[in-house]
Write a protein that binds this DNA or RNA. Structure first.
Length: 854
RNA sequence: GCCCGGGUGGCGAAACUGGUAGACGCAGGGGACUUAAAAUCCCCAGGCCGCAAGGCCAUGACGGUUCGAGUCCGUCCCUGGGCACCA
């Protein structure tokens, strides 16, 4: 065996062993428990980033651990290959997205292979392959026929110069990223998936996902957002016609305090008002150019105008003015609200601003009045006042009574409202899965029949930023209607890439099936037993996948309802970012490795200096590594310099998987040092050494097995950083005894190598063979601590006086608490710290600690 | 703004779900080896006071519960993620 650790050689040998033995190819095997371990597939952006390395190393550690436990483990890999960056790259370089994407896949695949992941590459898939996306299309047409996919208008960002739809990401400060033009909202027809039909089930089932982090379940719960309330109507008359303005409220108990109503800018009443009043029209125009994403919408100044319409209070018949306000969302509830300024903060601000009446109707903790400024107590539940017959009622009683009365008048009823909206999947973009619909002047929207699928996306096009190139391609758009055969137009919208990623995990089971979306094998492998991916996907991707899984279940394609039994959400890899503001106001992002950070008095980074030219840079804080901010650390250099095992060990050791990881290059060196030390220890393992004294052997054995016990516990909790620490502790324990193979060191080293094998598989593979422990460490049995090695005759108690540590006491193991107590009363510690004070109480925590209260 | 996390030495972290705060590492200091350096090995190391024994202070801040709080409760500060067309 070589003296020097050469990762390149070790990794090449191990990888070729796995390849020639087809070590990671798996098939259905009902004799063993199956374990489907999946990491979120990457978008092929060019090269792996640290987040990928972290994600896939965590997944690989769990995969190999479960394999060594004798389970039938599937770990596949694929590519989330459609998406916007490919179009951007195409525009920048004039290369078709297809070629850019496939080149990236080839490069990133080599990187994944270099990292030695135990992947079954036979199952590789890319969502941009027709063999994959045809099943998106097939499934869509089934949903369309069932009404679970449907068409309605939706709002998009419109760049009036490029005449194109922009993604939210492409809108910067309200302007198009390429043209700088003010972006407008535009309503266009789109296809939606009826996820709201599953809202109730998606919510209820969260309680039966013990393998998911509590916080993810909570986020999903809040996202789905079930609220119980009352849908009620304010009658009004328009052009001699009686009409109803419907609103939804969770606070029907405050109805008597409603002093005005407010409608969203997109509400029909707002449109009506705009036709009569140019000021309203201008306001709507302003809203149309205003914020689009919810985060901005929630922070804009609350503004509004009277529509000129007055309706009746449904209880009192009093006149209630109707306003249009920019804080009312068309997408939630009825697109209109009743405003109760006394008990709702937004309504309160709005009423103050426009001098609208504020009428308190709830007795809150601060009293019966609501003087400005706003206090959170005003919104609390309390008993009704100034509410006529409802006075004195508590929240629920009031809601029940009011709902019943409204119902009797036909002006309202209790309703469950969801925050969740249907999923708009149409994208006016080229590089995606074509929506399989043909528009026929005679037959309407006709789904493409199964035998004509897939609708193949032409791959040679290069988008130019002015709309979808498919729309300019008659060979694509002109097609006979599948229903009547007359000339018709093919839909050019493509699907949201979240559709692709909502079921790929099932397809890995049967990538080669050309006849079916999924088959028997998918029913064997599903659900995914362990899913691993970034916390940033906690809501959308995971919710869409849960929805898809249920629809597939209802289509009798799969049996289970939940796609992912256990979920590990890894923390993001963060890095600092710095930029130089150019004279034109653009930001030129400078890579952190080229920056000397500058710190303020508190030691916080507040800016930076570029090393090359001493330019002063602005600091943009810590954030996720991204191309746009030029702050990514390229793992390739790490792998080339230190080898895959060091890179793997480091990302596992640096931080627990769920923590965010603030990247720093220091520390990698230590991981490399540990592997070199391990190698050096093993290289001398067979050299003769001194005879090991019995008590040293016993102590070493105790150390190894107790560390192993803890490591196994940590593994079960997925706390992998301490498993890496455990391996280091084991090597430290073995090194205290220098050289020589004996029963103790052999036992210890074989445990160490097996414990470490999932993290650094290459070096462990080689050492396992070199030291003749066996043929393949991956086939070795997972180590369990020997209870005999853990036995101890004596226990060391910590002795505290009034909760402060004052000493220790070694006590024979078998003693009862009472006996321990009398021993401690006679001990030096008591003599020294207590002297003549009287002992009030002695608390003995068995096996651990004694606290004397004086 | 709303929803969900996190905050422990100079740095990454650990602490068996209320019981010895800082395991294991990184960076640092000292030493050995070397002509020298690198590599490797050994030792030291939370802060303050003290020659030492030892004492006091310390888990973002301030309160609370408890014999005992990094851990539980309350308020506040800082910070990361998500907010539906980035993936």
């Amino acid at each position: 065996m070589q003296d020097r650790y050469d990762p390149r050689e070790v990794e090449r040998d191990a990888q070729s062993f796995w390849q020639s033995h087809r070590s990671f190819a798996v098939t259905e095997d009902r004799a063993r428990p199956k374990f489907y371990c999946l990491s979120m597939f990457p978008y092929p952006s060019g090269k792996l980033h640290m987040g990928h390395v972290r994600n896939y190393t965590i997944g690989d550690v769990l995969t190999r651990y479960h394999r060594m436990r004798g389970e039938n483990v599937l770990q596949p890999m694929g590519w989330d290959a459609f998406g916007l960056p490919a179009e951007n790259a195409a525009m920048a370089n004039g290369v078709p997205p297809a070629r850019w994407t496939r080149d990236n896949i080839a490069y990133m695949k080599r990187q994944l292979q270099a990292l030695g992941f135990a992947l079954d590459w036979d199952r590789e898939l890319a969502t941009c392959d027709p063999s994959y996306y045809r099943w998106n299309q097939w499934f869509f047409t089934r949903l369309f026929r069932k009404g679970l996919a449907y068409k309605k208008t939706g709002v998009v960002n419109w760049d009036p110069v490029d005449q194109t739809v922009l993604a939210n990401e492409q809108v910067i400060d309200g302007r198009g990223w390429r043209t700088g033009a003010l972006v407008e909202k535009r309503e266009i027809p789109m296809y939606f998936l009826r996820i709201t039909a599953y809202a109730e089930e998606l919510l209820a089932a969260l309680d039966e996902l013990p393998g998911w982090p509590e916080r993810v379940r909570l986020m999903q719960k809040n996202w789905i957002g079930r609220s119980e309330g009352v849908r009620l109507a304010f009658p009004y008359e328009l052009d001699g016609e009686k009409k109803l303005l419907w609103v939804f409220t969770t606070r029907a108990d405050t109805l008597a305090g409603a002093t005005f109503c407010a409608v969203a800018a997109e509400h029909p009443i707002a449109a009506w008002a705009a036709r009569r009043d140019p000021k309203v029209a201008a306001f709507l125009e302003e809203c149309r150019r205003g914020a689009f994403v919810e985060a901005e919408l929630a922070q804009i100044e609350k503004k509004g105008l009277p529509t000129g319409l007055t309706c009746e209070h449904p209880l009192t018949g009093e006149p209630i003015p109707v306003w249009v306000a920019n804080y009312v969302l068309m997408g939630y509830g009825e697109g209109a609200v009743m405003a109760v300024p006394a008990h709702d903060e937004r309504d309160f601000d709005f009423a103050l601003r426009y001098g609208l009446p504020i009428k308190p109707v709830i007795r809150h903790p601060l009293g019966d009045t609501v003087p400005a400024p706003w206090r959170a107590e005003y919104a609390e539940y309390g008993t009704c006042i100034h509410s006529g017959k409802y006075d004195g009622l508590a929240y629920q009683e009031a809601v029940d009574a009011i709902a019943a009365d409204l119902r009797a008048k036909g002006l309202g009823e209790k309703q469950v409202q969801w925050r969740l909206r249907d999923w708009g999947i149409s994208r006016q973009r080229y590089w995606g899965c074509p929506v399989p619909i043909v528009h026929c002047p005679a037959c309407g929207d006709v789904p493409v029949p199964d035998e004509q699928l897939p609708v193949v996306l032409p791959e040679h096009l290069v988008p130019d930023g002015t709309g979808n190139p498919l729309a300019k391609m008659p060979e694509f758009t002109s097609t006979p209607c599948p229903s009547c055969g007359k000339p018709a137009r093919r839909e050019t919208d493509t699907m949201d890439t979240f559709v692709d990623s909502s079921w790929y995990f099932a397809r890995f089971a049967c990538v080669d099936n050309e006849r079916q979306m999924v088959d028997e094998r998918a029913r064997y492998w599903m659900p995914v037993d362990q899913y691993i991916g970034g916390i940033e996907h906690a809501i959308l991707h995971l919710l869409y996948s849960r929805f898809f899984q249920r629809v597939m279940r209802d289509e009798k394609l799969l049996e289970v309802s939940e796609p992912f039994t256990n979920l590990l959400t890894q923390g993001m890899v963060l890095a600092e970012s710095f930029y130089l503001e150019t004279p034109e106001g653009r930001r030129e992002w400078v890579h952190p490795s080229e920056v000397e950070p500058q710190r303020d008095a508190k030691g916080r980074i507040c800016g930076g200096i570029r090393r090359s030219d001493r330019a002063t840079l602005a600091y943009d804080g810590l954030g996720t590594m991204s191309k746009s901010k030029n702050n990514g650390v390229d793992p390739q250099q790490l792998i080339e310099r230190y080898g895959a095992d060091t890179a793997r060990f480091f990302v596992i050791f640096a931080s627990p998987p769920t923590n965010t990881l603030e990247w720093s290059d220091e520390g990698v060196e230590g991981s490399s040092r540990f592997l070199k030390r391990l190698w050096a220890y093993c290289a001398k393992f067979d050299e003769p050494g001194p005879i090991m004294a019995e008590d040293l052997a016993r102590a070493t054995r105790f150390e190894i097995h107790s560390v192993l016990k803890q490591a196994n516990y940590d593994l079960s909790k997925h706390q992998l950083n301490t498993v890496a620490s455990a391996a280091m502790k084991m090597l430290n324990a073995l090194e205290r005894f220098r050289g020589g193979r004996n029963r103790t060191t052999e036992d210890g080293l074989s445990i160490l190598l097996r414990l470490l094998a999932p993290i650094t598989p290459h070096i462990c593979h080689t050492l396992w063979r070199e030291l003749r422990f066996g043929e393949d460490v991956m086939k070795a049995q997972w180590p369990e601590p020997d209870p005999k090695a853990l036995e101890q005759d004596e226990i060391e108690y910590v002795v505290q006086v009034n909760g402060k540590k004052r000493g220790t006491l070694v006590v024979p193991k078998a003693l009862e608490s009472r006996e321990v107590e009398s021993m401690v009363r006679a001990s030096d510690v008591v003599k020294r710290y207590i002297a003549d004070l009287s002992i009030r109480k002695v608390i003995v925590v068995p096996g651990r600690l004694i606290n004397i209260v004086v």
